[in-house]
Structures are given as C-alpha cells and as structure tokens.
C-alpha cells in the first residue's frame, strides 16, 4: 500500500467463472488518496478485480472488506453501460440518480449539482435529451457525470476514455485531477498518455496481480500496443 489510511483490503482472493480460475491469490490493500492504475491484457481479469472490490461480485475464496470506519461513497464508470438505452430517462434525470443517497434531498440543490457536473462534462446542451438519443461518447460522459456527481470517496473508472474525443478526454482528466486528495481512484486502462492520470501505484492483472513501477509507466508495452490487447 502506498496511500494514506487503509480503506479496502483484499486477502487471498480467488475468483472463478464457472470452473475456470479467472483471478488467483489476490492480496491488495488500498489506502486513502491512492490513484491506482490497473493494466493488463484483455481477459486478464481487470474488470473482474474492480467489480470484486466494489462488491458487485463475490470472491470464490478469500475476503474483501472495507477497513475504513465507514464505507466511502462509491462511484463507478463501467466499461459498458449496464442499462437499457431505450429507458425513458433524460440525461439530467439519469445523472441525478447518482444523488440517491445525497444528504438532505433538496431538489433545488440537487439540480444545481447536476447542472454543474453537466457543464463540466460539456453535456449542458444535452440535459433534456433522452438516453436513446446519445452517441456512445455522450453516453460515456453521462456515466462519468453520474459517478462523480455524488462526490465519491472511492471511484472506479473502467476504460473511461474509450469512445471519448480529445476535448472530452481533457475534461475527464481535469475532473479526476481536481478530485479531493483523499479520494481513491482506480483506473482500468489501456491508454495512459503522459499528462492524463497521475498514478501513485500500478498493477498488472493477468490472472494474478503483479506490482508495476510507476516510473516510466507510460512506456509499458501493454499500453503501447505491444501487449496482448
């Protein structure tokens, strides 16, 4: 662990898809404020790892538990949307669903927070658009807005920059860079150009976890198209 006070600890975690061992012997402790880059080939288990940490999957063996006194607010931008894009929701309504557990339930304050987040992700003009009308990149930006609007203390971004144009990528990295110092950010990526995500730690996931040096991470073969995927 290279961050602050421990937030989450995974001990001896295995995960099986059917009979196949997808992840084995995962030991990982994450501290407050860590910015963890998770790299690895396609099918290596990166998404499985973060879904285990979020509690969306249960380990086949081992244990994952929150070590902080209170579980932090969770934010998750999945690689692919899990919802039906024909669902009759407008962009602002969808982003507002990221505030279900926000204190107070003051609708006016909620609306202001949603509008501010839409503005920052260049979605203000689309606040009244229906999800079925969004492009792939716009949908991804709306997902990012929903994950960030509730001020998460533990944010997981699974290939967030995929399908984003250059302007949107810059907005994304500016938002992530401006998060409070104690916020944990886990980034699953194949795309880590200099000046984007300031990782404090990195791991390679390929059925197992392997620590990677942060120095020179941008030149790692797996990011330069020389890896498996």
């Amino acid at each position: 662990m290279s961050g602050g006070a421990p937030v989450l600890r995974a001990s001896g975690v295995d995960f099986r898809f059917g009979g196949d061992l997808a992840l084995a012997g995962v030991d990982l402790e994450i501290g407050a404020g860590e910015r963890l880059a998770i790299l690895g080939p396609n099918g290596g288990g990166k998404t499985t790892l973060v879904r285990l940490m979020l509690g969306l999957l249960a380990p086949s063996r081992g244990e994952i538990r929150w070590t902080a006194a209170r579980r932090p607010r969770l934010g998750y931008v999945p690689q692919f949307p899990a919802f039906d894009r024909a669902f009759p929701l407008r962009v602002a309504e969808m982003v507002g669903l990221g505030l279900l557990r926000a204190a107070g339930r003051d609708r006016r304050a909620e609306r202001a927070r949603v509008d501010a987040m839409l503005e920052r992700l260049d979605l203000a003009a689309l606040r009244g658009a229906y999800l079925s009308e969004l492009s792939g990149g716009e949908t991804k930006r709306a997902l990012i807005a929903r994950a960030l609007v509730g001020d998460p203390g533990f944010l997981v971004l699974d290939e967030p920059a995929a399908s984003l144009d250059e302007v949107s990528r810059r907005s994304l990295w500016a938002l992530v860079g401006a998060l409070p110092a104690e916020t944990v950010v886990l980034l699953v990526t194949h795309d880590l150009a200099p000046g984007t995500f300031a990782a404090t730690r990195a791991v390679l996931v390929d059925g197992r976890l392997e620590a990677l040096p942060v120095e020179g991470l941008h030149q790692h073969p797996i990011l330069c198209g020389h890896g498996h995927g």
Binding site: Y76, A82, D84, F87, L89
Partner: peptide, 11 residues
C-alpha cells in the same frame, strides 16, 4: 433503470 448503480449507492 440500473440495479447495479443503485446497489453501489447503498440501496
């Protein structure tokens, strides 16, 4: 709409 996202918020 999105059971997974709702669950992550503690619902």
């Amino acid at each position: 709409f999105d059971e997974e996202a709702a669950r992550l918020q503690g619902l």
